[in-house]
Design a protein around this nucleic acid. Structure first.
Lengths: 191, 191
DNA sequence: GTGAGTCTACCTACTAGTAGGATGTGGCCC
DNA sequence: GGGCCACATCCTACTAGTAGGTAGACTCAC
């Protein structure tokens, strides 16, 4: 199999970052996780920065793909928002309470990252907020969302809530707690 | 001066964590920052875990002290919430856009921390949410806040929004952006 | 003289990254 | 088809730098 090892490296790296951040992800840990020598990882990703970029890139493409499927679905705006929040909830559940959004984790370590990675994280934030704006506008036009102020800011608010909520919920309450918070936010927009 | 060095160590450690997380804080960095040898830091804080605990403890006492002053002040509930959000905003502004809440940063690295530190971070979250509940209840009774659902969940929501917002805003927009998001949240509760 | 504070000098473990050799595999020439 | 080259993959073995932590000596104030 050709790209198998490469994929295994990306998987391991991503999982490590989602659990403890980029500084807790090392070539040694990856090597132990997938049963390969450290030097072999360097063959696929010359530097840690390159690996980080690749992980961010792959994660962004995947995540936005799922988000776009939600945005373009036939669901109601309320259901779309619920499904969007569900992505964050299932990330936590998936890793039995200790995984958070990759780019949320990296946001904390932003100042220790190289500039290509920083740009990738920034883009992730922007693109997600843009999708949320679409959903919110749709709901506002249909008259199911009622809020004062700019849609742009409500989108930013929801995104920060979910990113922050994923981190906070890992400390206590887990995915159920994040779900409750998301529902409460829907209450505020919807009521 | 007696406790001067100890304070300088705590200050440097806290600043390093607020910028890049606990894993980006090392005895060497602290030593360079305050002009003392690495071994001398060990005299004051035997292990990194002990230092971390002390930083969390001091930060929590200070932060909750300021929060309690806000809660017990004669301000209106809306103004109290604004002042509370202002704490997060000024943290970002203070470190020219690259400092976030200490416990928000540590939340990301939770799985790499020792259990006393984890407990400290958890307590910080709980105590902050409890203060927010007080403010929200007060505003609800006075009839200035209108929202469906449990106060407890709205408090958790606001807290996650501010912690997450502080991290996301460092990537783009800074304290001004966090301020806009906080105002938008007030819009949702107040309108 | 005791003890707090600081120092130099060291230790072991881990970090990212490099050099160079072993294996295998697919294509190409004859 | 057999022989050969080129490339990919993975390995062992190494480097230099950094991590947290320790031992023991010096200094100075009470």
């Amino acid at each position: 199999m050709k790209g198998d090892t490469k994929t295994a490296i990306l998987d391991a790296a991503q999982a490590l970052i989602q659990r403890g951040g980029a500084n807790a992800m090392s070539y040694q840990h990856i090597s132990q996780a997938i049963g390969i020598r450290k030097a072999s990882i360097h063959h696929h990703f010359a530097t840690k920065e390159a690996l980080l970029e690749a992980v961010i890139q792959r994660y962004t493409v995947y995540f936005l793909g799922v988000v776009d499927a939600i945005v373009q679905s036939k669901k109601s705006p309320v259901e779309k928002l619920r499904a969007y929040a569900g992505l964050f909830e299932s990330t936590i559940r998936e890793g039995k309470q200790d995984k958070a959004c990759l780019c949320g984790m990296l946001g904390a370590e932003l100042s220790t990252l190289g500039s290509p990675s920083v740009a990738g994280v920034r883009r992730f934030y922007r693109d997600n907020e843009a999708r949320l704006v679409q959903i919110l506008e749709e709901g506002r036009e249909e008259g199911v969302f009622h809020f004062k102020g700019e849609t742009r800011l409500v989108a930013a608010m929801i995104f920060s809530l979910l990113e922050g909520g994923a981190l906070v919920a890992r400390a206590e309450g887990g995915h159920k707690r994040l779900h409750s918070m998301a529902e409460q936010m829907l209450n505020l927009l919807h009521g």
